[in-house]
């Protein structure tokens, strides 16, 4: 039979040591930070180029119908929205919350989970609706400028791509993230219960 003091003595006798040195941490940190920064930069440049091309097309092309101008405004707004969402996501990768008390931190994680769900479902739906509306408006003038065949092809490919993203790709992504979040919810609820027990 051992008492707690004996267990403490066993604990202090252990020789298990971390296999990570401070150099490893710094090396990994530089790698991660550079990876994140370049990914963010590539996405920003990509969306920036898309917005610039849209503005150029808007200015350079002799669009005559108000529907096309509205479509261009919608596309540019979508690009700006995407960039803002990216910046907001980047801002969430701050670690201030890590200094909160565990219960507050759990609440922060719960909020994060909720926000991610909203972002992946409701906001993406609105984004897709606006994008689709933009293309519908855009193709009105295109239908007058080109042959019916080209218009039909353009509309078909565009809407097939939007449908593929919305009904297939995004659903796979949401399913994967939901499975991960579901585990997080279970963990959080269990933990929350433990903290409630502690307060009694």
């Amino acid at each position: 039979m051992k008492d707690f003091e004996a267990l403490k003595s066993i604990w202090h006798d252990q020789v298990a040591l971390p296999k990570v040195s401070h150099e490893d941490v710094l090396k990994n940190l530089r790698k991660t930070r550079n990876g994140l920064a370049s990914k963010l930069l590539i996405e920003m440049i990509g969306m920036g180029i898309a917005a610039a091309v849209l503005i150029y097309v808007w200015i350079a092309s002799p669009f005559t119908m108000w529907t096309t101008h509205l479509a261009m405004i919608i596309f540019i707004c979508c690009c700006i929205y995407y960039i803002l969402a990216m910046i907001s996501n980047y801002r969430r990768i701050n670690y201030d919350k890590l200094l909160d008390k565990p219960e507050c931190y759990i609440n922060h994680l719960k909020k994060y989970k909720h926000d991610r769900y909203i972002f992946n479902t409701r906001k993406y739906k609105v984004y897709s609706i606006f994008f689709t509306a933009g293309f519908i408006l855009y193709f009105i003038e295109i239908s007058f400028m080109t042959s019916l065949w080209i218009t039909v092809m353009g509309i078909s490919f565009t809407f097939l791509w939007i449908a593929l993203c919305y009904f297939v790709l995004m659903r796979i992504y949401i399913k994967r993230e939901e499975a991960k979040l579901e585990e997080m919810i279970q963990n959080l609820e269990r933990l929350h219960k433990q903290f409630e027990d502690t307060d009694q």
């Binding site: 670690y95 890590l98 200094l99 008390k101 931190y105 994680l109 997080m184 963990n187």
Partner: peptide, 15 residues
């Protein structure tokens, strides 16, 4: 401060 970061990192760890 370090312990708190570690605790929160552990709590948010998903198996």
């Amino acid at each position: 401060w370090i312990y708190r970061i570690a605790v929160n990192t552990c709590l948010s760890y998903l198996r």
